[in-house]
């Protein structure tokens, strides 16, 4: 099957005079894991944030499962969607933040229940059942009634992943999910992501974990200076990089 789940075409994004994305093209097929690598400032995180419309693009377009994100097309025009409709689109796109961004005043269970009840209008009982199942899946069934600050960083990030999954998204985006963690906690989070990869979840992961990329990625994308420099299977990009910039980056991080 080669149906494209995420389609990014010619995306440009500037913050004032600073051009962060300069024409990015990316296609992610359903069920595939794409790992985005690149030096800091290369636009990886910005790309991820444009995919769920946390950042508006200046040029180009993005579609998920054939649906334009943030716009409605009629003929040759793109009409900007209202916030309400953008929020609805976001329920199809799970996002995991570097700093977890769990809601500290809600229990772990309520963190998972909030969005399905508020955004998808699921009955609370059903949402609670789903939440407990997901917590068990990330190995935190016993932490349902804890508050996020009572958990370790690794546990918090696993809760954040479960929270994103609670909406049953079509695609999961990870923005450096292990960068805020102590080294000994990185493994438990990567294990959860690997497990998701095995079950065929479509994912785009921005990370610095080269080992993880090699093991899990179907496609590795190397970005630098706001463009995709090189992409392909990990064996190609990581072991026989074609571009000088890719080689320079890999020699620094490996």
């Amino acid at each position: 099957m080669s149906d494209v789940m995420v389609d990014v075409r010619g995306v440009h994004k500037s913050f004032g005079p600073l051009e962060v994305l300069r024409g990015v093209d990316l296609r992610v097929r359903a069920g595939e894991v794409t790992v985005v690598l690149g030096p800091s400032g290369s636009g990886k995180s910005t790309l991820l944030r444009t995919i769920n419309h946390l950042e508006k693009v200046n040029r180009g377009w993005i579609s998920i499962d054939g649906e334009l994100i943030g716009y409605r097309r009629s003929g040759n025009r793109l009409h900007e969607l209202k916030e309400k409709d953008v929020l609805k689109q976001r329920t199809h796109i799970g996002f995991v933040f570097q700093n977890f961004n769990l809601f500290p005043h809600l229990t772990v269970l309520d963190n998972l229940v909030e969005a399905p009840v508020a955004a998808l209008r699921r009955p609370r009982k059903e949402a609670v059942e789903t939440a407990r199942r997901l917590l068990a899946r990330v190995g935190l069934a016993d932490k349902a009634d804890a508050y996020p600050r009572q958990l370790s960083g690794g546990q918090q990030q696993r809760v954040a992943i479960a929270r994103a999954l609670a909406l049953e998204p079509k695609v999961l985006l990870f923005d450096e999910p292990t960068s805020a963690l102590d080294p000994e906690l990185v493994g438990e989070v990567l294990d959860v992501i690997k497990d998701l990869a095995r079950t065929g979840t479509t994912m785009i992961v921005v990370t610095h974990e080269i080992g993880f990329a090699r093991e899990v990625a179907d496609t590795v994308v190397f970005m630098d200076g706001g463009v995709v420099v090189e992409q392909g299977p990990p064996s190609a990009v990581l072991d026989e990089p074609q571009h000088e910039r890719t080689r320079a980056f890999l020699s620094k991080v490996l």
Binding site: N52, L54, E83, K84, L87, K88, Q89, R90, T91, I93, F95, F97, N99, N101, L102, F103, P104, H105, E114, A115, A118, A119, L120, R163, A164, L167
Partner: peptide, 26 residues
């Protein structure tokens, strides 16, 4: 923290509810 609003927006929580349930209690 601004990340709280971003997380709420990323989860598709409606705007008024973001304020009432996520922002104001904090």
């Amino acid at each position: 923290d601004e990340g709280q609003l971003e997380a709420a927006a990323a989860l598709g929580i409606p705007r008024l509810r973001q304020i009432r349930r996520i922002v104001l209690p904090q």
